[in-house]
Design a protein around this nucleic acid. Sequence first.
DNA 1: GATAGTGACGTCACAGAT
DNA 2: ATCTGTGACGTCACTATC
Lengths: 334, 334
Amino acid sequence: MSEKFKDSVDLMSFLQHNSNENEFFDNTEFPTKKESTNINMNQNSSNTLFSNIHDLNTNPITCFENKDSFNEFELTDDTNNYAQGPIDENERIRRGQGGGNHVGGTSSLSSLSPTTHKSSSSLNSNPLIFTNDNIPVMEESGDKKKAQNRAAQRAFRERKQAKLDSLEHQLKESEANKEALQKEVDTLRKLNQEIHAENRTLLRKHDDNNNNMSNSINYNQNNFAGQYTEDQIIEKNIIHRTREDFYKDLMKQVKVATESNSETIQNKTYEDNDGNIIMTIPATWEYLQKNYGEDIDIIKVLKSLRGKEVCHGAGGAYPKVIIDEAIKRLMDEQ
Amino acid sequence: MSEKFKDSVDLMSFLQHNSNENEFFDNTEFPTKKESTNINMNQNSSNTLFSNIHDLNTNPITCFENKDSFNEFELTDDTNNYAQGPIDENERIRRGQGGGNHVGGTSSLSSLSPTTHKSSSSLNSNPLIFTNDNIPVMEESGDKKKAQNRAAQRAFRERKQAKLDSLEHQLKESEANKEALQKEVDTLRKLNQEIHAENRTLLRKHDDNNNNMSNSINYNQNNFAGQYTEDQIIEKNIIHRTREDFYKDLMKQVKVATESNSETIQNKTYEDNDGNIIMTIPATWEYLQKNYGEDIDIIKVLKSLRGKEVCHGAGGAYPKVIIDEAIKRLMDEQ
DNA sequence: GATAGTGACGTCACAGAT
DNA sequence: ATCTGTGACGTCACTATC
């Protein structure tokens, strides 16, 4: 009963219902020996009541960590507000509900359970209040403890819920980011493919033209004797100019690449005759650093790669397959 | 009390504690009128007990949706397992705990609260069982309902927890994916830049050649009117030829550069504002390899250089002074 | 060593589904 | 009309922390 009305301000209604309730309680599982407890009960109830009113209403701020919790009880007075969201204190009172309906039992009874209950006796500073018969009536601080527990649980639940909400939000955001990134990857890949294709086309055309050119040169040669050297010269000039320009461009590229923090991997990465990607050691380093820099010990990988170099003039190179294998091994180890 | 031991199989211990408890319950808030309730109580308790044993133990599968819930009670028998994870049924019993400790009160009492309680009376098909005195003893289906509620709540909690776990897992995965995608984006972007630069170089080359060609074409044009279209065709061909040649040259040069291992160093070496030579890590590698490849353990040097990186977007670079110092140290060691 | 935090649970109210 | 799912809450046991 004290539990039942613990949070209730409605002392009058409690007192009103009292006699009737006693009628009912005749059939409780725990028959008590005598009377006089009625007075005790009332006394207890009011004690409990007041202590709880103090705990939960007059000074709720002490019970709750954040203002929200507090406002919960201050803002709303809608007693019909069952639908969603936290329930305000009035509503909680109105319902007189919750698992804690220890109807007809004082909290001290809990210490009587066959299970080991240390809390009631060990955790309370003033464990028991005695009537003049020296019969333990109730634990004042036991109820205090209960009030604390209630508040703690409430706060905890709120934190938990907030955490859950945040989690959900994070996930949503992460998924959105992922999608955006995936789109970007697709776009970039496509773009890459296009440019690459263009470059390849240029290359192929170049070869064709080369042939064309030599054909045409031959043709010219056939048709115009003596033009050989001139054609050659022109060709050379063109080549030469091309070379220089190329080199200039290359340098420019390198500069841009360096400045923009974009490395010149292509200089160190190539395909062998079978189409396997081969990376020189510097390229390997870059590759590792770029893609796994935070996650693995690059030097370890390089060490594990030692001796697996394929022939390469510049002091060793590794097939990308081998590198990836080594990375996988190392990551599996971790 | 029936609540207290609702889920308990330990009827004996309950009975043993019974008398003592009655002593204590003398001071409950709800003194009952008479005796004979003792028998009733036992009866009730056993009723309750059995119905709950049935609900929760002998036929637990009816209470829980999934096999996991069921196994919970089958797998573990560790009564000391407080630490984490769900508690098996034995543990639950041992504790005899939970909010539902309606000590000393039957569930029917809840309907006596001043708040409107419809459930007990309206939601139960067989609300009350009467003793031969026609005194309501307990609600058989009330307890049934409670058992159902317990099971439902338990299942719900488990689902909720599973959901939360899954959520966390999803988030983790999503984040990992995100990171991978981000890396891919970076890689692709870089690659794109490179290819694009290459493309641009090609195009510029092309334009240059174009100009060259068009000069000569113009010249030709000047000389041979009406050749315009043919010239255009030629121009196109020539342009292509030039491009291709350019590209070949590019490749050649790159190859030379790579083989001779001389060109690419400068790509990664630069001077800082004070004129100090700074080498990126790949540059360092090349530098070491080229100049000391046979004499020292490059990896050792790199290791000794660790942590001495200066700021460099591409993942670290070392002042040449530092590198040389490290080399000297290592050589002195040997 | 009192207190807060947390895990587990049971109870109730209520909304829907059946 | 009954059952199920869920939100809210309180209680207890235990741990961590100051």
